[in-house]
Design a protein around this nucleic acid. Sequence first.
DNA 1: GTAAAACATAAGTGCGTGCTTATATATTGC
DNA 2: GCAATATATAAGCACGCACTTATGTTTTAC
Lengths: 104, 104
Amino acid sequence: MNESDVFRALADPTRRAVLERLLDGEKNASELREGLGISQPAVSQHVAVLRSAGLIAEKKSGRHVHYSLAPDGLAPVFDWLTRYRSFWPARVDRLKTLLKEMDQ
Amino acid sequence: MNESDVFRALADPTRRAVLERLLDGEKNASELREGLGISQPAVSQHVAVLRSAGLIAEKKSGRHVHYSLAPDGLAPVFDWLTRYRSFWPARVDRLKTLLKEMDQ
DNA sequence: GTAAAACATAAGTGCGTGCTTATATATTGC
DNA sequence: GCAATATATAAGCACGCACTTATGTTTTAC
């Protein structure tokens, strides 16, 4: 749940792929597994890492578990990144545009 | 120089500490080493990882090498992070404030 | 030219990590 | 209750990685 856990969790491409899939909305473990080409336990282990890093939330529903992106789970990364804002020259404009869009 | 290299580079706390030190300005390897409690080759190896991830730049000057943060080196992280902007609720306001400050 | 300084590379080591198969736990449908 | 489904945990393995010591390379100072 600290900065180190989050960065470590994000270092693995399979875990980033899992997060990516959750952008569409919540999914259970079997759905997350599709196309990843790894075993069911592997998914379960990745999910455990993401959850203990505070990146995903889970909601049990019978024998299914629905996983979703945890709001503000990426906050540690975001906070870390803002310290380097002077080194983003080309990104700031994009960011401003983004925020204007969000205002509307 | 791609997303995976950058995330992998950032996963190590010592490497994040190295970047942190470069926020003050450029430093050579011996200066970077101070307080880290690791050997000179270890620093050299971390620097190599950061450089091949596009996160730091180097400028040779005699027998010294001055390392500095690479402008836009964190762009891959930033771009990745913007995809999750809907899950930053509490961060957006802070970000707006930050950009207002940068405008002045 | 020679020694020292700054950094890089090589080689080895131990531990972490991502995977597997096997098994356990819990829930549903019949 | 029993089989099937959904997920978690255990144990083992292979590889990656962060370190170390030893050595190489380049540059400066004398």
